[in-house]
Every structure is written in C-alpha cells, then in structure tokens.
C-alpha cells in the first residue's frame, strides 16, 4: 500500500507510548500496519499515528481491545488530504 493509496485508515493514540504499544500488539497479532507521522489535517496527539488498511479494522480492533489500547480516534482517507472521522 503506497502513500497515495486512496483507502487508508489512520488511528490516533493518546501518547507515544500508546502508539508504540499498539504497534507491538498489532505486529504480534499479524495485522499489517505502518507507523506514520500524524497527517497534519488530523489533530496531533503526538507525532506518530498508525495506518492500516480499512479491511483490517475488525482484526485490529480485536487485538487492540484485548490489550486495552483502543485509539482515541480513527479516520478514513476519503480523498487527497480529506479525512472522515469514523467509529473504530
């Protein structure tokens, strides 16, 4: 999935530690993800966010809920620089 991928989901966490923990859990659970700088259009809760393919949302949810690491917010990329906040 390249940077220009039209469909991606961005997960925002409370702090750096929470992003790092979420990354560890997702990788451990075999959910494909990438750590990215928080897109400027989204309120930055810390410098980093997690990007997943929206199709992985269910699996990501399961893994993160089990670890009590649900994101503060989730955003779908709708078009160039246009995000829609969605329920995770």
């Amino acid at each position: 999935m390249g940077d220009s991928s039209p469909r991606e989901m961005i997960l925002i966490f409370r702090g750096t530690h929470q992003v790092m923990s979420a990354e560890k859990r997702l990788k451990g659970g075999g959910v494909p993800m990438r750590l990215i700088p928080v897109p400027r259009r989204l309120t930055s809760d810390c410098g980093l966010a997690i990007r997943i393919n929206p199709e992985e949302r269910e699996r990501a949810r399961e893994v993160l809920a089990a670890a009590k690491l649900l994101p503060v917010s989730a955003h779908l990329l709708r078009g160039e620089g246009v995000y829609e906040e969605v329920k995770f």
Binding site: T16, M20, L35, P37, C46, L48, A49
Partner: peptide, 20 residues
Amino acid sequence: PGRSGHALSLRSARDIFAAR
C-alpha cells in the same frame, strides 16, 4: 521522541519504548 514523526524521532521513541 513524540515531537515529530521523522526517522530520528522515531528511533528515540523506539529506544525509550524498548527500555520501558
């Protein structure tokens, strides 16, 4: 760490996370 998303910042964040 936690102040931006560039590679050096990320590396520091990973070091601190690993230590913790």
